[in-house]
Design a protein around this nucleic acid. Structure first.
Lengths: 230, 230
DNA sequence: GCACTTAGGGTCAGGGTGACTACAACTCGG
DNA sequence: CCGAGTTGTAGTCACCCTGACCCTAAGTGC
């Protein structure tokens, strides 16, 4: 049996905010300061223990809300980390999730002594194996960006093509040709009638995602494992 | 804390063997018969409890060997299943792995009352949520076949292009053009000097994988989480 | 020697991609 | 009110990858 193994969930949360140097959108991640040993005062991913009456994704969502005040628009399991020595005092297996939030939702997690936002590509030394975990989560986010539709988790229901392109550029860290980008994503979108005026240029059209276009995602798990709390 | 959650590992093992009807290679999976409740007498994925002094992948490999006698050439974590009601009597979280074995290794797991090989695409109703798990594992195998190099886990160190192509055909369940297939995979291979004579046709050349060609795989986890027991 | 079978090299048309050009349509400064 | 500035959107073109297809190479077996 395995009663002496503790089961935890942690989540790597990503949000887009301006980079302090360039002003361009960049990936940020909220971390919590540990208030006890091991790794007291080190920054760590938000997380906690799984209680017996909640699913893993529910536990992740609950811990997220409790520790950082964040309610994500996207939540997916990343990996189960279970090396014997990953916690110095006892055996902990962590089911790690990754989440995407919109800027407004991110603001719910106000910086404070206990929660602080960091640039995802420039983190301090974290507690446990959390640096490795964030690296892996970043890799998954960037890989998945290329073939799936997760970018929309950073945006509202409607958006301009430039907004969508800037999400891709921020995550992939390279500029994309506006015309070519349009050609590629337009088949998965539906144009609305609305144009956004007010900019000092030609007003862009608002788009929404075309729900009828199915993309490869998580295969059989896509429908099979919905969150029990919507 | 989480002492009342049991932590298990299970593994979906794949091997290629001839299909009884067509004679072509097909995917087979070994299952074990449950000897106690819940789901007594139902077929299930091999698995067992994680002990506190072994990593998750070690636990998977050990359980594999104990229950089916199989030592895989490839072992990768699939997903952590943790729905509250997936086991009727108590709360079990299962870290599921998937494995690939060569035919010789597969023969170690002789069919018997307790272990039997099934066609992966034609399974009976399994215990727990194991049908969903196998579906997901199959999806991952087939998806990964297209962009990675896992096919080699079904083969020895050297192989002909036809052997490699037949592995792809068996997994993807569709015929591939030999000439086009060669063009696509040859850049990742090294030709040996050896030709295989004895067939009633032009002798094919043996190839081996080019270790210097890096493919996208599991990102940061590729090197970071090796099995502790090699 | 000839039929047969698979190995392996080549061609060609079509689709997608990146680089680039051109025009459209708004705001703002004068 | 007009032109400059800026971004949105359409289109072109060369290139590469792909699938479909053809052809020759080189063994075995009769």
């Amino acid at each position: 049996m395995s009663a002496d193994i503790s089961l935890a969930v942690s989540t790597a949360i990503f949000a887009l905010r301006p980079h302090p140097d360039t002003g361009l959108s960049a990936l940020w991640i909220p971390l919590v300061r540990r208030t006890r040993d091991p790794f007291e005062n080190r920054w760590a991913l938000p997380g906690g223990w799984v209680s017996p009456d909640e699913s893993l994704s529910d536990a992740a969502a609950r811990n997220l809300l409790e520790t950082t005040g964040v309610e994500p628009t996207y939540l997916e399991q990343l990996y189960a980390f279970g090396a014997v020595d990953r916690s110095p005092d006892r055996r902990v297996v962590s089911i790690v999730y990754w989440a995407l939030v919109r800027p407004e939702q991110a603001d719910a997690a106000t910086d404070g002594d206990n929660v602080r936002w960091f640039l995802a590509d420039d983190l301090p030394e974290l507690a446990f194996d959390h640096n490795l975990i964030v690296d892996y989560a970043l890799w998954r986010l960037r890989t998945k960006m290329e073939y799936s539709r997760i970018a929309h988790a950073f945006l509202g229901p409607t958006f301009t093509l430039t907004e969508l392109r800037e999400v891709h550029e921020a995550v992939l860290q390279r500029p994309l040709d506006p015309a070519n980008f349009r050609r590629q994503v337009e088949p998965t979108l539906v144009a609305t009638e609305t144009l956004v005026t007010g900019g000092r240029h030609r007003p862009p059209r608002l788009y929404r995602y075309d729900e009828s276009v199915r993309l490869v995602d998580n295969g059989p798990l896509t429908i099979a494992t919905p969150r029990s709390t919507p």
